[in-house]
């Protein structure tokens, strides 16, 4: 049972601030998501937690111990590139990692990978490779798991299966930090930290993040000049095939601007729209 704690975590590369004063906590049995686009600072944050990069300011601890003083065996890590040997079989990859940690290799059958244990990793689908990487990262039963975009590029069923494994691991008491650029995966996390340009723009449960953020849905005919006017007033105007959605302006403002051709209705924001609202 371990806790990850980041306080004011900051990393600069020259003049560029990759991570700016990030503070968050991941408790035992929790799945916390770091959400943001490529370049938002997610991987840099994870590298500081892993002790692969030193913070420029702030600190990160696991169970109160600074990362630099930590026995790294408490951590498991799945990088974006997976870190598997493509020319070794699934079993060989697992046995190699287990031997490096000085532990017996766990059962592949129990992980549902018995059928592919003798296949070379390079021959497997991406979804299966990601599951193998997860089993390898857990082979020494770490109390903390750091997963960098573990579902990237995987189809819906493969993603669902990976999330099952992540939740099952959390139920054993592991603290899990997972990054993703899929906004819909926020619903899989107990809490999320939304990042943009290295900074936290919102944090909490999905319900807390969306909170009372409202969007305005517009139907009917809306001339381009009106859209430009809404942009000028500070709104983010989004077009989809069902009409327009406006984030960041109140109903009266939008309704007045789109009349008489368009009709405006206030609707709950989607998680993505809430993110846009915070990032704007």
């Amino acid at each position: 049972m371990s806790t990850i704690q980041a306080d004011g975590l900051t990393r600069r590369f020259g003049d560029m601030v990759a991570v700016d004063s990030l503070t968050f906590r991941v408790g035992p049995g929790e799945v916390v998501g770091l959400l943001g686009a490529n370049g938002a600072g997610k991987t840099t944050t994870m590298k500081m937690l892993l002790g692969l990069l030193s913070p420029t300011a702030g600190e990160a601890r696991i169970d109160g111990t600074l990362i630099r003083d930590l026995d790294r065996r408490v951590m498991g890590y799945v990088p974006q590139g997976l870190g598997l040997y493509r020319d070794l079989t699934v079993r060989e990859n697992l046995e190699f990692a287990a031997a490096a940690f000085g532990v017996p290799a766990p059962s592949l059958e129990a992980a549902g990978l018995g059928a592919v244990s003798g296949r070379r990793v390079g021959e497997l689908s991406l979804g299966l490779r990601r599951r193998v990487a997860f089993v390898v990262a857990r082979c020494h039963e770490p109390a903390v798991l750091i997963l960098d975009e573990p579902t990237s590029g995987v189809g819906p069923l493969g993603r669902a299966r990976l999330w099952e494994t992540i939740h099952e691991t959390a139920e054993t008491g592991a603290a899990i930090l997972v990054s993703t650029h899929y906004m819909d995966e926020a619903e899989e996390c107990d809490r999320v930290v939304l990042m943009a340009d290295g900074r936290e723009v919102a944090a909490g449960t999905v319900d807390e993040v969306v909170g009372n953020v409202r969007s305005v849905a517009v139907s009917g005919s809306v001339p381009d000049a009106v859209v430009e006017e809404l942009h000028r007033r500070g709104g983010t105007v989004l077009l989809d095939n069902h009409g327009w959605r406006v984030v960041g302006l109140d109903l009266a403002t939008v309704a007045g601007a789109v009349a008489p051709g368009g009709t405006a209705t206030e609707v709950p924001a989607t998680f993505e729209e809430a993110f846009v609202s915070f990032s704007s």
Partner: peptide, 17 residues
């Protein structure tokens, strides 16, 4: 792929347009 939500939505608006 990999874009922030604002860029994604702006790009979609351009595509739909």
């Amino acid at each position: 792929t990999g874009l922030d939500p604002i860029s994604r939505l702006e790009l979609w608006s351009f595509i739909v347009g």
